[in-house]
């Protein structure tokens, strides 16, 4: 799920950045530092959309660095248990398949793939129903449900399932 939220961060700035462009420098550094990172609470910071306010700077003793509390708006992405996500399959093997939804890596084990889908090895490993009508392989797009999440410093891991109504392949690259 995406959220548009306000976060705060204390930015330390080297004195050489002071001057007319101080604000620009601060924002540029903020984007560099924050975009693409993860936090357990908020998830993946996709993009900074605006600056709410920049507080008064505080000179750090000894170093000359100045700390600015910056409040900024950003779009974050965090998967939740029970959330339905659409993801692209990246790898299929006998354990199940791996899929990606943006920065999130999702694993759907073969326990959570419907029982009528069977693993087929070969050049293009895939899971196929007995009548061959549905096929999951690399680059397939699937709709899945998240049943477990873990957020690391830089990565988000999820366990997904497609063993439920209305879940599974939503487009088939081979048929397209």
């Amino acid at each position: 799920m995406f959220f548009h939220i306000v976060l705060e961060r204390n930015m330390q700035l080297h004195p050489r950045f002071f001057g007319r462009n101080l604000r620009d420098n601060l924002v540029a550094k903020l984007m560099k530092d924050v975009e693409g990172t993860c936090s357990g609470r908020h998830g993946f910071v996709v993009a900074i959309t605006g600056i709410e306010n920049i507080g008064k700077g505080l000179i750090r003793e000894g170093t000359g660095y100045v700390t600015f509390p910056v409040k900024y708006q950003c779009v974050v992405f965090r998967p939740f248990k029970g959330e339905i996500l659409e993801a692209v399959v990246t790898m299929v093997n006998k354990m199940g398949f791996f899929a990606e939804a943006g920065p999130v890596q999702i694993f759907v084990s073969n326990h959570l793939i419907p029982d009528d889908m069977e693993f087929q090895s070969g050049d293009m490993p895939n899971y196929t129903t007995s009548d061959g009508s549905v096929k999951i392989q690399k680059d397939s797009e699937v709709r899945l449900k998240i049943i477990g999440t873990r957020v690391d410093a830089t990565e988000i891991f999820c366990i997904g399932t497609i063993k439920d109504d209305f879940l599974g392949v939503i487009n088939d690259p081979a048929a397209a």
Partner: peptide, 14 residues
């Protein structure tokens, strides 16, 4: 039966 990223691959529990 196994884990991915520290979560059980079947029930999703940590």
């Amino acid at each position: 039966p196994g884990s991915f990223g520290g979560m059980c691959m079947r029930c999703g529990k940590s």
